[in-house]
Design a protein around this nucleic acid. Structure first.
Lengths: 144, 144
DNA sequence: TATTGTTATACTCTATAACTATA
DNA sequence: TATAGTTATAGAGTATAACAATA
């Protein structure tokens, strides 16, 4: 045993964890939970999307999503409107205030993260992205 | 703008998310929450560790950790014993039953994951690990 | 019948702060 | 004073299932 892929996954998890550790602090200080920030970041720079798409992207299940969206709506950061073509769907998008928040806090979280890459060259990014794309292709394949 | 590192981080997140999506289902079916599995996986194949170390590794804060450990102890999967050298510390380790569970469920989650890497060669792993190690080094650097 | 989203429930996680005991 | 872990609290996320409206 001692599956080699486990080492890669563990490395992957450690990278992600380490990045999230600092960004989570950041997000918290700004008064958002991880899920809330996830929604705002996902909606940012988009015309909006249905709850279904939002749930698929963020891995938040529909029952939970309703609650998270409720809190964001209460804060006035998002808007929900019934779809035209399919009246079962809700179209969710950032409100003007939500967009302002996105434009303010997202760069903050981003610039904090950027410090860690200060010595990465284009070639470094190239090779990293190449490997991650290869990996993602495998991971996205449906197995079951 | 359009920070290049964001693309890498997004790729990283997508890989992690995709892996967790399937493993989370798995873990749930086996009757554990993500945090609980995280603890079991972290304690597996170790002689145990202090709450502090466990918290650092899993990113679970100490207040929360107590609750998670309580539930695992209730299920008889872990044991806590007061440290000898420093009597403030608690030493946490898998019980015999916990170890059995670890040895049973971990490979299940693992083998599910392995299917996705079936065409990875040693060279593929080499290059992936090289990039992830380089990345991890940057991410672990203390910035603030 | 199937799908989109809400509601309801029970449990778990989470941050935070005050606390106990050791150091 | 500082550190390791617990307790207490309020809020949020979670899975799950039943439900309404629409397709």
């Amino acid at each position: 045993m001692g599956e080699r892929y486990l080492r890669s996954i563990r490395l992957l998890a450690e990278c992600m964890q380490s990045f999230e550790k600092s960004s989570a602090q950041n997000v918290r200080q700004l008064g958002f939970t991880h899920s809330q920030f996830d929604i705002i970041a996902t909606l940012g720079n988009t015309p909006g999307m249905t709850c279904k798409d939002l749930g698929d992207k963020t891995l938040i299940t529909k029952g939970t999503l309703t609650g998270v969206l409720d809190r964001l709506e209460q804060k006035g950061l998002i808007e929900r409107e019934r779809g035209c073509d399919d009246r079962r769907q809700l179209f969710v998008k950032l409100s003007a205030e939500g967009d302002a928040v996105f434009k303010e806090i997202f760069p903050q979280v981003v610039s904090k993260g950027k410090q860690r890459f200060d010595d990465y060259t284009d070639a470094d990014y190239d090779s990293l992205e190449r490997e991650l794309l290869k990996l993602r292709e495998r991971l996205l394949r449906v197995v079951d």
